[in-house]
């Protein structure tokens, strides 16, 4: 609805700019022009972001089948979350996965960033090589590993390891996949942080006789704190919402041992046709993540 209205507003504003007419104050006209330019953003934010945000809460209060009319049943969808056959296990598994990934990914990304920090001949090649897996889509990366870690066709069959055969191996293999795909991305984030540290700071520390380790712990790490915090936020939220890797690569198995929280939402919605139940889990997850993000932003600033 806002579309056509702001369209006319805009024409008037443009005409006034050319000086054919002189209605209203120029400030008002400029404000109207600004609103016209922002109108598409407003329409998208309203219809595709705020509306679904309200709808997900409404849905969570109803028995909402995939087909057919919804009926109000609050708070049944929330009450039954704890009884969901998969969700409690998925929470534990997702938290465990998030903790492991966040530690390993930060360490690996920091290591890589430090390795390619200095400008030297050939450093661009190494940066690109470490990042390149990040240019590949995550679904494609998961499918790549699906084939590569298959012992009949993959190059590692001779090792005789069942890469996705046991719960622990399935998790380990997924972690390797995620590290491979995201290490370069996080390296790039940390690299921007490293490069914003003035060279003079390092030089001063060296001339004061600081060792490499001292420079790292006393200068690099503290000055990198905001960038590290950003990387942690992205890594934690990304891991809590893990889906592709477990849906495509391990398919939740073996024995539902790698079912993540978002997979439960998906299964409830599209296998059990219970959109209301899926919405209730979504709302809980949403609340937790918004709270977590707010907390992390506070710590960051």
């Amino acid at each position: 609805m806002a579309g056509p209205v702001s369209g006319t507003v805009h024409v008037t504003a443009a005409r006034a700019g050319r000086g054919r007419r002189a209605p209203a104050r120029p400030g008002t006209l400029r404000a109207l022009a600004g609103m016209a330019y922002a109108a598409p953003t407003a329409v998208i934010v309203l219809t595709l972001f705020l509306a679904p945000l309200v709808l997900v809460v409404v849905m969570s209060l109803h028995r909402w089948p995939l087909l057919g009319a919804p009926t109000f049943n609050a708070p049944a969808n929330y009450a039954k979350i704890a009884d969901d056959p998969l969700f409690p296990g998925a929470v534990v598994f997702t938290l465990k996965y998030t903790a492991i990934i966040t530690v390993l990914l930060s360490a690996l990304a920091l290591g890589l960033a430090l390795l390619v920090q200095e400008r030297r001949p050939g450093v661009g090649f190494f940066r690109t090589a470490f990042f390149l897996p990040g240019a590949v889509g995550f679904a494609a990366a998961a499918l790549l590993f699906y084939g590569m870690l298959n012992n009949d066709v993959g190059p590692f069959g001779f090792l005789g390891v069942k890469w996705t055969g046991t719960p622990n191996m399935a998790l380990t293999s997924t972690i390797v996949l995620v590290l491979w795909r995201f290490a370069g991305f996080n390296m790039l984030i940390l690299l921007t942080g490293l490069q914003s540290i003035p060279v003079e700071v390092y030089e001063a520390a060296r001339s004061d006789g600081a060792s490499r380790w001292q420079v790292f712990t006393r200068i690099t790490l503290p000055l990198l704190r905001p960038t590290l915090a950003l990387m942690l936020i992205l890594s934690i939220t990304g891991s809590l919402l893990a889906f592709d890797q477990f849906f495509i690569f391990t398919n939740g198995g073996p024995d539902n041992s790698t079912v993540s929280m978002v997979m439960v939402i998906y299964r409830n919605a599209f296998f059990k046709f219970d959109l209301g139940g899926a919405a209730a889990i979504s709302v809980v997850l949403l609340a937790v993540l918004v709270a977590l993000n707010t907390l992390q932003l506070k710590v960051l600033r």
Partner: peptide, 17 residues
Amino acid sequence: AILMVPYATILIPLYVL
């Protein structure tokens, strides 16, 4: 704020919408 809201959680209502 779109960044704050996890992707996966609003796709179900978007499907309905």
